[in-house]
């Protein structure tokens, strides 16, 4: 029941999100704070040209490859008034 009050997120989803952020940062030896700064900068840059959901940018790093994958969700056009 508790999760209904936290933006609909269950504790499982929160744990998954926290871990995936933390582990990506640790795998490339970059602090979570720095990761957040990267996300902010990318959000700001792309926002100049496109309407993106800057709050939900995520960064992933596969352990076996050296490819950094950055997900930038587009903002739903229906919600443009928000």
């Amino acid at each position: 029941m508790m999760h209904l009050f936290k933006k609909g997120k269950t504790s499982r989803m929160i744990a998954r999100e926290r871990l995936s952020n933390l582990l990506t940062a640790e795998r490339i030896d970059c602090s979570p704070r720095m990761m957040q700064m990267i996300k902010n900068d990318i959000g700001k840059t792309i926002s100049r040209y496109l309407t993106v959901d800057a709050q939900n940018i995520s960064i992933k790093l596969e352990r076996t490859s050296s490819l950094l994958i950055i997900y930038v969700p587009m903002k739903d056009t229906e919600e443009k008034h928000v």
């Binding site: 999760h3 499982r12 744990a15 871990l19 352990r63």
Partner: peptide, 18 residues
């Protein structure tokens, strides 16, 4: 607990640790 969404599932853990 997994069913209630209060614990990470097997799939979650496997995906995170790869």
């Amino acid at each position: 607990m997994v069913k209630r969404g209060e614990m990470m599932s097997v799939e979650d853990v496997v995906e995170i640790l790869a």
